[in-house]
């Protein structure tokens, strides 16, 4: 029993620097949080409320699930991507480029530092997403009078996917931050890859090898977030258009299992590689 207590005490002492870093990171990044929160609230209010409430020619989507998936498009396409880039781009490289690492590294183990910082930023970004989901859900209740049963469960699952997608994207950006020289270069390069690179490669793949599903692409995986809300999950998960002798295949969304697997791979590989490179990198 004594040994167990000692073990617990030891574990607590080991975790303490992570907690301190987590709290410090929350204080450090709160401005970004407020910025993204303001943007998110504006987008939700304008896109999911004013659009339908003020403009007479804007009619509400026929189904509640269409309204929800429409409301989440901005989140999956822009907010998660930009928030991940802005929150995580400086997570490692800023310690080197700004030389702030000099006041930290002798005091805290690099692994503990990166875990604390990573969790702190994730918490804030998750907060933005949760508020976005809450607002869209709340407004949908206002328009459709009810929000319960299967759709509510699906909406919650969609939130879980959005959360995992956000972590995957954050790990991806953290990985870039571990070897890039400056925050700005990290932001630009990750936005280019995530926003343009993946989509262009998907287009090429569609033309050159349409039978290959672009599961490597995070933007393709993100379609799960809205697809899960549809009354009928797309099956098969692609559509084909035939033009003369050529058949184009458009991949709509990955299967849930595949999506989860890819997200977990991105999360673990991205973070482990980032932590390893961070440990190796010297001031």
């Amino acid at each position: 029993m004594e040994k167990f207590e000692d073990g617990l005490k030891f574990a607590y002492l080991e975790v303490k620097p992570v907690i301190h870093t987590f709290v410090f990171e929350l204080k450090k990044q709160w401005k970004k949080f407020v910025g993204f929160l303001v943007i998110s609230v504006l987008i939700v209010v304008l896109q999911s409320f004013i659009l339908y409430a003020l403009f007479s020619d804007s009619l509400l989507p026929t189904t509640h699930s269409d309204y929800l998936s429409g409301g989440l498009i901005f989140l999956t396409s822009f907010i998660i991507l930009f928030a991940s880039c802005f929150f995580f781009a400086g997570i490692i490289c800023a310690e080197f480029s700004d030389k702030t690492g000099y006041i930290l590294f002798p005091k805290i183990n690099k692994y503990k530092l990166i875990i604390g910082k990573y969790l702190g930023n994730l918490f804030l970004e998750a907060g933005v997403i949760a508020i976005f989901y809450f607002l869209v859900g709340f407004l949908s209740y206002f328009f459709y009078d009810q929000f319960s049963g299967t759709l509510l469960i699906r909406y919650f699952i969609s939130f879980v996917f959005a959360f995992l997608y956000m972590i995957a994207m954050s790990s991806f950006v953290t990985f870039f931050s571990s070897f890039m020289r400056s925050v700005n270069v990290t932001i630009v390069s990750t936005i280019l890859i995530l926003f343009i690179g993946f989509n262009i490669s998907q287009m090429f793949l569609m033309m050159l090898a349409p039978e290959i599903e672009p599961i490597y692409s995070l933007s393709y995986i993100s379609t799960l977030i809205t697809s899960i809300l549809l009354i009928e999950f797309p099956d098969p998960n692609y559509s084909e258009i035939s033009l003369q002798n050529f058949t184009f295949r458009t991949w709509l969304t990955p299967t849930i299992e595949m999506g989860l697997l890819v997200l977990f791979l991105y999360i673990t590989i991205g973070f482990i590689l980032a932590a390893y490179l961070f440990k190796r990198r010297q001031l």
Binding site: L46, Q47, L51, F55, S58, L60, T62, F143
Partner: peptide, 30 residues
């Protein structure tokens, strides 16, 4: 406060653009 709008048709592209412009203007002001 306006009352609830009855469910109907689809998404209007023009209005979306307008909304987008309003968002941009508000962000710039902020």
């Amino acid at each position: 406060m306006m009352g609830p709008v009855k469910p109907g048709g689809g998404f209007q592209g023009q209005n979306f653009l307008l909304i987008f412009l309003i968002i941009v203007i508000i962000i710039v002001v902020i």
